[in-house]
Lab assay of single mutants.
Amino acid sequence: SDIKVHVGDITVELHNVSEEFARLVEEALRLGLNEEQAKEWAHKALH
């Protein structure tokens, strides 16, 4: 599904992702990663 993740003043739109993936992206953003890094990190975490 499509999910918007908000962290501080950052909003990341995720398309066709699981809630778990979105949660991992949100966690990575909170750790200070940028959007691209957060998506990559979440992807690796799920595989």
Rank of each mutant, 00 (worst) to 15 (best):
S1Q: 09
S1E: 14
D2E: 09
D2F: 11
D2T: 14
D2L: 09
D2R: 00
I3D: 09
K4V: 15
V5A: 02
V5L: 11
V5M: 02
V5N: 06
H6C: 08
H6Y: 03
H6I: 15
H6W: 06
H6A: 12
V7E: 05
V7R: 01
V7D: 03
V7A: 07
G8P: 03
G8C: 05
G8S: 06
G8R: 00
G8E: 08
G8K: 02
G8V: 05
G8H: 07
D9W: 08
D9L: 13
D9R: 01
I10H: 08
I10Y: 08
I10P: 04
I10A: 06
T11P: 04
T11V: 14
T11C: 05
T11E: 11
T11N: 01
V12E: 05
V12D: 04
V12M: 09
E13I: 15
E13C: 03
E13P: 02
L14Q: 02
L14S: 04
H15K: 07
H15Q: 11
N16V: 05
N16Y: 07
N16G: 14
N16T: 05
N16A: 08
V17G: 02
V17W: 03
V17P: 05
V17I: 07
S18L: 04
S18R: 08
S18N: 08
S18M: 06
E19F: 14
E19T: 11
E20H: 12
E20M: 11
E20S: 10
E20L: 11
E20R: 11
F21T: 02
F21H: 03
A22S: 07
A22R: 06
A22N: 06
A22W: 07
A22F: 05
A22L: 05
A22E: 04
R23V: 09
R23I: 11
R23N: 14
R23S: 11
R23G: 11
L24P: 00
L24D: 01
L24Q: 04
V25M: 03
V25I: 10
V25K: 01
V25A: 01
E26I: 12
E26A: 13
E27W: 10
E27Y: 12
E27F: 13
A28K: 01
A28C: 02
A28R: 01
L29W: 01
L29H: 01
L29N: 02
L29E: 01
R30P: 00
R30E: 06
R30D: 04
L31I: 09
L31A: 14
L31F: 15
L31K: 13
G32Y: 01
G32A: 01
G32V: 00
G32D: 03
L33N: 04
L33W: 08
L33H: 09
L33I: 05
L33Y: 14
N34R: 07
N34S: 12
E35Y: 07
E35K: 10
E35V: 15
E35I: 14
E35T: 12
E35N: 06
E36R: 12
E36P: 09
E36M: 14
E36H: 11
E36D: 15
E36W: 03
Q37M: 13
Q37G: 06
Q37I: 04
Q37P: 02
Q37A: 12
Q37D: 14
A38G: 02
A38L: 01
K39M: 13
K39H: 03
E40K: 11
E40P: 00
E40G: 05
E40W: 08
E40M: 12
E40L: 13
W41V: 07
W41D: 02
A42E: 00
A42T: 01
H43E: 13
H43T: 14
H43K: 12
H43Q: 13
H43G: 10
K44H: 07
K44W: 10
A45S: 13
A45V: 14
A45F: 14
A45N: 15
L46T: 10
L46A: 10
L46P: 03
L46E: 10
L46H: 09
L46M: 13
L46Q: 11
H47R: 04
H47A: 15
H47S: 13
H47P: 10
H47T: 15
